[in-house]
């Protein structure tokens, strides 16, 4: 059930991307999609009663470590990509004087 809920959050992000009129809101929607993807992947290997994948003693039941190792890189990449997008937003505001999609797509200065 939980992966389906994560997928609903991804779809909410897609809806926000399609309907938002502000650039910063679009960047936030990309961030929502990314967070929901992280949730989806972490859910895959996890189950109730599973311990963290650190072998402190023999014969313990662990969760799947592979999705966690993939997502740890996703978090760092996501933060840097978000910062790059926000820096582009600042540049767009200096150039067009607005961060509304309508004004920018019209091409006025």
């Amino acid at each position: 059930m939980n992966p389906i809920l994560s997928f609903v959050v991804i779809l909410i992000g897609v809806y926000g991307l399609a309907t938002s009129r502000n650039i910063i809101k679009s960047v936030f929607c990309v961030t929502i999609i990314e967070s929901a993807t992280i949730l989806l992947f972490l859910n895959l290997g996890a189950y109730e009663g599973g311990l963290v994948p650190i072998l402190t003693e023999l014969g313990i039941e662990i969760v799947d470590p592979l999705p966690q190792a993939l997502m740890i890189t996703t978090i760092v990449i996501g933060s840097t990509i978000t910062s790059l997008a926000l820096m582009l937003c600042i540049k767009i505001f200096h150039h067009y004087g607005s961060i509304e999609w309508k004004v920018i797509l019209r091409g006025d200065k």
Binding site: I54, L55, T56, P65, A69
Partner: peptide, 9 residues
Amino acid sequence: SRNLVTAIY
């Protein structure tokens, strides 16, 4: 590595 996540990445 005892931490399997570190072992993978």
